[in-house]
Design a protein around this nucleic acid. Structure first.
Lengths: 211, 211
DNA sequence: ATTTCTTAATTAAACGTTTGTTTGATCTTA
DNA sequence: TAAGATCAAACAAACGTTTAATTAAGAAAT
């Protein structure tokens, strides 16, 4: 991927995150990126292919770290959950604009193939968490829970706060100029909440657990 | 509101939920609703004012029931939470297309005034739940938790499953033709999960609670 | 080193559609 | 007959895209 293409993709990500795909025009994008309108079609073929290139380019942000945590045998099950939560938050906060674009797209009934690609990006994270939960249930350290819905809770809680800044600061009762996503105290607060929540929900207190 | 205006609004809701506001054209809407393209501007003035009328018309779906539950003195705190969860799920499932449109809009940095109106619709629900949680913490039946984030968890879990059907059925590992939102067993499953989650998270087991 | 040639990059302008909106005539209804 | 409702048609603007001309860049040949 050339520098020029990356330069356009980065500005496209900004624009799509703000106005959505349909709400963004190539002329607006070209102006922001400081390139001629024809360059988008020259490099990517079409607006939609630019979107696909963007998703492909950014897709790699996913998975690897969570996978390592899940496989690390020196962690207990609940420690794995804790580390997964922290890393999941960090990853989503860092890539929040891309994440927002993905969810915008997932809400629509358009561009079938692109949606499938997005599922392929997001779902593996769920599989990893699910594996940890099911292992914990099997060996008795976790209670009987509904793994897919536990995942929905972890991802949903983060998304609820990440996808709409306006609703987030309203919930937190902060001023309009507060940017929660750049405040490490907020990331910590969210992590603490999710860990406390998961400990209470998952941990088996009738204690035949292995630590 | 005349029948004709409602008829257009209902079809607009369908279309916006599928393709988003910018992705929907007035011609497409007129064709679906079986009216002339000029009727939208005749009745509503503009596409954007139609959107505002839609939000205004549907906004009343909110609040009332949750408020009654919170004020009902014959319920314990945790019983209030249980009832709020059930009613919240029912309400969001019933109005899921409208709810999806609201969240699409909240993700964008456009139409400032409309976003404020949407916050006014969604936020009161949070205030009610927050009141119950804080009351429970005060009288010792609930543990010390982070009320805004508890709300984010309840709303976020439901939204995670409600806003993208494709991701929902992927999480649940169902076939592509399964429609979770019309399956009462799924609503029950979601309610059970959230209640179990909130019981574990909120209830104070060092028991100086008033049952 | 300079010129030549070839390919890639860049541009302003134009293309054909589609967009939201308006017009002015016609139909409906009371 | 007056006011509202409906319509096909037209409007200007914006859209994604393409064209054709120009510039830039690097290798090859002189």
């Amino acid at each position: 991927m050339t520098d020029k293409k990356l330069h356009i993709i980065n500005h496209a990500l900004e624009l799509f995150a703000e106005k959505g795909f349909e709400g963004s025009s190539i002329r607006d994008l070209a102006a922001r990126a400081g390139v001629n309108v024809a360059m988008v079609n020259y490099y990517f073929g079409s607006k939609e292919k630019l979107f696909e290139s963007l998703v492909e380019e950014r897709a790699s942000y996913s998975r690897e770290v969570l996978d390592e945590i899940a496989k690390n045998t020196s962690y207990s099950d609940i420690e794995k959950i804790d580390h997964i939560i922290d890393n999941y938050i960090k990853k989503l906060f860092t890539n929040r604009k891309f994440h927002r674009v993905l969810h915008q797209e997932m809400m629509l009934n358009q561009r079938e193939t692109l949606q499938q690609a997005i599922v392929e990006i997001l779902y593996p994270n769920s599989r990893i968490i699910k594996g940890v939960i099911e292992a914990g249930m099997k060996n008795g350290s976790f209670r009987k829970v509904d793994p897919p819905l536990v995942i929905a809770t972890i991802a949903g809680t983060i998304n609820q706060l990440l996808l709409s800044k306006r609703m987030c600061i309203k919930l937190l009762e902060k001023d309009a100029d507060y940017i929660p996503y750049e405040d490490p105290r907020f990331a910590k607060r969210l992590g603490d909440h999710l860990k406390q929540l998961m400990h209470a929900h998952l941990l088996n207190h009738s204690d035949n657990s292995k630590k």
